[in-house]
Amino acid sequence: MTDQHPALSLRGLAKRFDTKIAVAGVDLAVPTGSFYGLLGPNGAGKTTTLSMAVGLLRPDAGEARVLGYDVWADPVRAKSLLGVMPDGVRLFDRLSGAELLAYHGLLRGMDPAVVDQRAAELLDVLALSDAGRTLVVDYSAGMKKKIGLACALLHGPRLLVLDEPFEAVDPVSAALIRDILHRYVSGGGTVIFSSHVMEVVERLCSHVAILAEGRIKRVGTLTEVRGDRSLEDVFVEVVGGRTATGEELSWLSR
């Protein structure tokens, strides 16, 4: 029955912090098998939206469903289908890479033998096995992103929610992450990730939503949103930025 449902559906999600409205009613349907990009400037509410979608932050209003299961009413079913890589959240970083993977696997109720095998494979593919027993806290930023991705993938989720997976990642690692995600989607998985790097989104995504000031401004397949222009032009127009004229900050030039 889950196949009739979108992989992730958000309805009227809203969140207010003190006086600031972070997310003002977000509706989104992420079709199964899609590669979905959530675009937005800094502070648009991307992280808040995704946190509410995966059960890390309780929404003030609205609902989130993963393959039909309500994240807040039936968290156990929903969370078992989810793989999450949050941004700005520490991993249990005083474990080594292998220990961290084992922890995540067992926490998901996986068979120890399967955990061992998958962990070894993931560490190999992500080029993390050389790190040996180095604690994750001593990893570089790119390595931390990769081990975070491995933790999210380990239990073979149906939906992968990634917050800023390409931030602070060098080109080599980024290419590797892209390949892995591609393979995951072509194998029937669904990915939604947030980013503000247009180039990555244009290359990867089948669907795009642009979020600004807590609202969805544009949504649809990449070609629908982009039209015949570049995604960056659309984005800047939607978000409404300003360009430097050259008059200000004159003291910057010698």
């Binding site: 292998a98 955990v115 061992d116 095998q117 962990a119 027993r133 180095t134």
Partner: peptide, 14 residues
């Protein structure tokens, strides 16, 4: 310190 010889699988290490 990152000792070379890592014994056992991930679960054993944890």
């Amino acid at each position: 310190r990152a000792p070379r010889g890592v014994a056992g699988g991930a679960v054993t290490q944890l």
